[in-house]
Computed example of a mutant assay.
Amino acid sequence: MKTVRNIADLRDAVRGLRAEGAGIALVPTMGALHAGHIALVDAARRRGLQVVVSIFVNPTQFGPHEDLDAYPRREAADSALLVQAGAALLWAPDVGTMYPSGFATSITVGGVSERWDGAARPGHFSGVATVVAKLLLQVDPDVAFFGEKDFQQLAVIRRLVSDLDIDVEIVGVPIQRDDDGLALSSRNAYLSTDERTTARQLPRALGEAAAAIVRGADVAATLDIARRKLADAGFTPIDYVALCDADTLEPLDQLTKPARLLAAATLGRTRLIDNLSVEPA
């Protein structure tokens, strides 16, 4: 696996991969890789694609009081994982390469970005949309793979690609979970031992709520129960627990179509997000 750090080398390397006859996949990450990221690489390789992985901790998607400085950075370990997983190229630019002096462009995606994490983290999805657009233009992949754990992010990226006529297929890969159900996340490293034990209450509360909703329970009452369970477990604040249309992410008060149960809540200093697919019976 080759590592490149500037645009010219990246484009030369991608041209070389294309010359070998396979399509190109992009797996964008912020590093601190885990089995969830490797599942994206695996999904791309199963399709016979040459896999380009980007590692860039994007400052524009962090708020002023969020964890940009604390976010784990461990490129050497990440690189070793990617070699083992069979990635072909690591794109590891620095901030100056991505946002050189005078950079003045920002992309905003309306609609699907406005509720949930868009409301809880103002400006976050503008930062995501801008950096993803840049990565897609830089690498020019045939397919880009994203995890469904960040389900709203995936919806934003799909809208971005559709609206801007970017010629790339966007593939969502199912959430990878620990044995106790907690969704894998780089931020799980922030959890203390006790918090890690408590954290499993998030997927448990969502699973119980999803099952109740499928059985016909009142949606609003069921969501209230889930919020109380999280509060009782020690999560605070609870940004949202919501049942949404799986495509538009607009809230639903009845399960009449394919839906997604979304949640975000903080345990100690760690903000956790999760979601489950909910289908009408």
Rank of each mutant, 00 (worst) to 15 (best):
L26M: 08
G110F: 01
Y99S: 11
L191P: 10
F62L: 14
A265P: 13
K229H: 15
G110E: 08
D67V: 12
Y99T: 09
A80L: 15
V4M: 10
A87I: 11
G102I: 07
E250I: 01
A263T: 12
D42S: 13
R215C: 11
A39R: 13
T193G: 12
L160H: 06
R115L: 15
R121E: 08
V83W: 02
L267N: 01
A263W: 06
K134E: 05
R46C: 00
A120W: 03
A8M: 06
G127I: 04
V57W: 04
D218L: 03
A8L: 12
L89W: 05
A220Q: 08
K257Y: 00
V95A: 15
T198Q: 12
A104S: 14
T248M: 02
D78Q: 05
Q201S: 12
N58T: 09
R227C: 15
V131L: 05
G172M: 12
T108C: 11
I170K: 07
S79N: 11
K149Y: 04
H37T: 02
T248L: 08
N188E: 12
S185Q: 06
M30S: 07
L261S: 06
Y240G: 08
L90F: 11
G268T: 14
R269L: 10
S113N: 04
Q50I: 00
A212R: 14
S186T: 12
D42I: 00
V131T: 06
Q254C: 07
V53S: 01
A85C: 01
